[in-house]
């Protein structure tokens, strides 16, 4: 097994929204994007971060230091994942690599995926698709399922709200879709940013192009991350935005249902 290592900021067991069955989700730290609506601000930096946090016990408060980001070897991660093998077997679950952007630690991710394959563990990669084609090509054969985020069809808008160009993203989607690997598309619904009629229409066109896309998850904006931004002292441009309207989300769900059989709200 490889000796590569990477930066991990969380390993969550009993993960139920990141692919089939009961899963373990491994969150790799660091992301080249900086989406305005990002729910995991602590996942963005490629460095370990340190914060003062508070533990409460009855009425007393205790400060403690929280380190976000832990350098782990492939073996260490796999050992933690393997604890749930019997649960994967029972539920047809597996491991999901998420982030951050897992493809931004390509060697580590590749080694993790290889190790999982060797142990017959189902693998999913939850990605923004922002990576070089070379990296993507090396990941595809090792991955059973992609959870692929698409946000905006317009290059300018994409840059404006995520900080990066979308061109490699759509190229990579094309690569995956043509490889016949399973893909679930995920679309964040952000009021007046990603939910414009034009954007949704064009995203739907893209989805329609690929029959291998079986399912779309639409993720309506929720102001859940506000507390995290405060906790980590980060600036949240959408801090005052409202929770996305349920009815509108329902309409958009139906809109995508016209081209894909399974659309779910929230994934």
């Amino acid at each position: 097994m490889s000796t590569s290592s990477g930066l991990v900021f969380d390993i969550r067991h009993f993960s139920v929204h990141d692919g089939p069955g009961l899963r373990v989700t491994v969150f790799l730290k660091g992301c080249p994007l900086s989406c305005a609506w990002c729910h995991n601000p602590e996942s963005q930096s490629f460095e370990t971060e340190t914060y003062m946090r508070i533990h409460r016990l009855d009425d007393k408060e205790f400060e403690f230091v929280e380190h976000i980001g832990n350098r782990m070897s492939v073996n260490e991660v796999i050992q933690e994942v393997e604890k749930d093998i019997s649960i994967f077997d029972e539920s047809k679950g597996g491991v999901t690599f998420s982030g951050g952007e897992p493809l931004s630690q390509p060697e580590f991710l590749r080694d993790l995926l290889k190790a999982c394959k060797a142990k017959e563990i189902h693998t999913a990669v939850d990605t923004s698709g922002f990576a070089s084609q070379l990296v993507m090509e090396s990941i595809i054969p090792l991955t059973d399922l992609f959870l692929f985020d698409i946000k905006h069809i317009s290059e300018d808008e994409h840059k404006k709200y995520t900080g990066v160009s979308n061109s490699s993203i759509f190229k990579n989607l094309d690569l995956i879709a043509k490889s016949n690997k399973k893909v679930i598309i995920r679309i964040p619904l952000i009021q007046n940013i990603t939910d414009t009629g034009e954007n949704l229409k064009l995203l739907r066109e893209v989805i329609r192009k690929y029959p291998s896309i079986e399912r779309v998850d639409i993720l309506p904006f929720h102001n859940i991350a506000k507390i995290k931004y405060e906790r980590f002292g980060k600036n949240y441009t959408l801090g005052n935005a409202e929770k996305y309207d349920d009815q509108k989300a329902e309409q958009i769900k139906n809109y995508f249902n016209e081209v894909v059989s399974i659309v779910s709200i929230g994934g």
């Binding site: 993720l219 929720h222 859940i224 507390i227 929770k243 929230g266 994934g267």
Partner: peptide, 15 residues
């Protein structure tokens, strides 16, 4: 919470 689950303790008071 909304499309995912979280520890109750980790949520802000309003939520």
């Amino acid at each position: 919470v909304a499309g995912y689950s979280d520890y109750f303790n980790d949520l802000g008071e309003a939520l």
